[in-house]
């Protein structure tokens, strides 16, 4: 007769879950998970995919294409554009934004529109952008620190967006503000600047066809470190004018305060047009280093966009209004 000695680790037949019970449990878990997800989905608005590197649909070519630029202005690599950033909300080092902005969730996102306009109010990022055609705009980008890049932005003409809010005659300037949230923007925990970041344009500058609100880069959703979900791009001005991660747009009569001007008025003017003839206390602006090159090149008046924007400043002393 065979006597079986049971070891502690041996499983009794009665302990084994029957196939049918096992399948039932699986089915229950699956349904429960699906139901949960469905419930969550039904309460959330339908959002387009927004993770960086997600391709954007329906991007149209524009007159400012890569091909329209001179041969010595090749487009910078995605790696260069997304790893070398001044975005003090995520740290003051050039590599800090890429490192510290990864966790940042630029959704859901709302923009407060206020001031001298007929249709003020809060608007979601999606509603702000959706009515417009996305355009590729390949622009030179000149930082006040005397380096530059060529960036293939995807965006919408700023003027087209602003018109929807019907600015009144009092709207002589437009003011922008970046998100203030030290929890999500660790750089704001230090008083590097008087947060939130503030910027502004004269209304005619804002309405210039060159001015855009950018939502993409290289045909894809803009990465956090470059100012997700929506940022300004004004390519004839020094880079710091192109405010990132915008949450407020305000039309007003008076010239608005701007962050760098508040921090050092002698160094950063309201206009801050790229101008090789007007030197900065920290940098000669006569030349610049193109990222990817070692030796400097001459800086162009209005960053090479003289034809488009020189008319905005015909009667102005650009030395005084730097």
């Amino acid at each position: 007769m065979l006597i079986k000695h049971r070891k502690a680790s041996d499983v009794l037949g009665s302990e084994i879950t029957s196939k049918s019970v096992f399948d039932d449990r699986r089915r229950f878990l699956k349904t429960a998970a699906l139901a949960g997800a469905g419930l969550a989905a039904s309460t959330l608005p339908t959002l387009p995919a927004y993770a960086a590197r997600t391709p954007l649909d329906g991007v149209q070519k524009s007159k400012w294409s890569a091909e329209s630029l001179p041969e010595n202005d090749p487009v910078n690599s995605y790696e260069d554009i997304t790893s070398y950033n001044n975005f003090y909300e995520f740290g003051t080092g050039k590599s800090d934004p890429k490192e510290n902005a990864q966790e940042f969730e630029p959704r859901p996102w709302e923009i407060m529109v206020e001031g001298a306009c007929a249709k003020p109010g809060k608007i979601s990022f999606e509603d702000l952008i959706k009515p417009h055609t996305l355009e590729e705009r390949v622009y030179r980008f000149r930082c006040v620190e005397a380096w530059s890049m060529v960036v293939p932005w995807v965006g919408v003409p700023l003027g087209d967006i602003l018109k929807r809010f019907e600015p009144t005659a009092d709207a002589r300037y437009v003011y922008f503000e970046t998100l203030l949230d030290p929890e999500r923007m660790p750089g704001q925990r230090a008083p590097v600047l008087n947060w939130p970041y503030k910027e502004g344009l004269r209304m005619d500058e804002a309405m210039n066809p060159l001015s855009i609100l950018a939502v993409g880069l290289y045909g894809e959703v803009i990465p956090n470190q470059n100012g997700a979900p929506v940022r300004l791009v004004v390519p004839w001005k020094y880079g710091f004018k192109s405010i990132k991660s915008i949450v407020k747009i305000k039309f007003q009569k008076e010239m608005p305060p701007t962050s760098w001007n508040e921090a050092a008025a002698r160094e950063y003017g309201f206009y801050s047009n790229v101008n090789p003839a007007v030197r900065h206390p920290r940098w000669s602006q006569a030349s610049e280093r193109r990222i990817g090159e070692i030796f400097k090149r001459k800086t162009l008046m209005f960053n090479g966009y003289e034809e488009e924007v020189a008319g905005l400043y015909t009667d102005m002393d650009l030395r005084k209004w730097f």
């Binding site: 910078n76 070398y84 050039k94 280093r289 070692i294």
Partner: peptide, 10 residues
């Protein structure tokens, strides 16, 4: 390698 960042001179 990208240890020198996009702007090695700086």
């Amino acid at each position: 390698g990208r240890g020198l960042t996009a702007n090695p001179v700086e």
